[in-house]
């Protein structure tokens, strides 16, 4: 059996991912998350008289708190497995990755576990966000003044 035949057999027996179902589920879940967020932001604006930009910052903090709490309680991993990008792309995914990685390494100790591996998954978002924002802002100042 040569390499080509082997790859053919692997391809045939690979479990097919339901791409269409995944896409629809993530569209609906992601949309619902953002819809609920808009409801919370509107409530904050009306009842507490916040400015629009201020209410979005509070919304971000509330989302991160809820997602972290659900991750720590153990519900959120199943949700993420089912909904995939519907929960990874919103801010919930950022909070989920941070809390789950810190829970995983918690038992290795405070410094060598928690301290060193805290940003394991969220680190790439922060790193590439900062790198790209730095260079693009320099470019933006050059172009727009």
């Amino acid at each position: 059996m040569d390499k080509y035949e082997y790859q053919k057999i692997v391809k045939e027996n690979k479990p097919k991912e339901p791409k269409l179902k995944n896409a629809i589920v993530s569209f609906l879940v992601g949309g619902s998350v953002c819809f609920i967020g808009q409801v919370i932001a509107s409530i904050l604006q009306v009842t507490f008289g916040m400015e629009v930009s201020e209410s979005y910052i509070w919304l971000c903090i509330i989302t991160i708190f809820i997602a972290s709490l659900l991750t720590a309680l153990g519900f959120f991993d199943n949700f993420v497995k089912k909904c995939q990008c519907g929960l990874i792309i919103p801010t919930t995914g950022f909070a989920h990755s941070m809390t789950s990685s810190s829970l995983d390494v918690r038992l290795d100790g405070m410094i060598s576990g928690l301290g060193m591996s805290f940003f394991k998954l969220a680190g790439s978002v922060i790193l590439y966000g900062i790198i790209s924002a730095f260079f693009f802002s320099i470019l933006g100042v050059i172009i727009y003044g």
Partner: peptide, 25 residues
């Protein structure tokens, strides 16, 4: 650079740290 993003970073660090101390994986 980080002034406006600070709220998201700080709140997620505090949430993740405190919850990791309280809960067991």
């Amino acid at each position: 650079l980080l002034t406006k993003a600070s709220s998201a970073i700080v709140s997620s660090i505090i949430c993740a740290f405190v919850l990791a101390l309280i809960f067991k994986p």
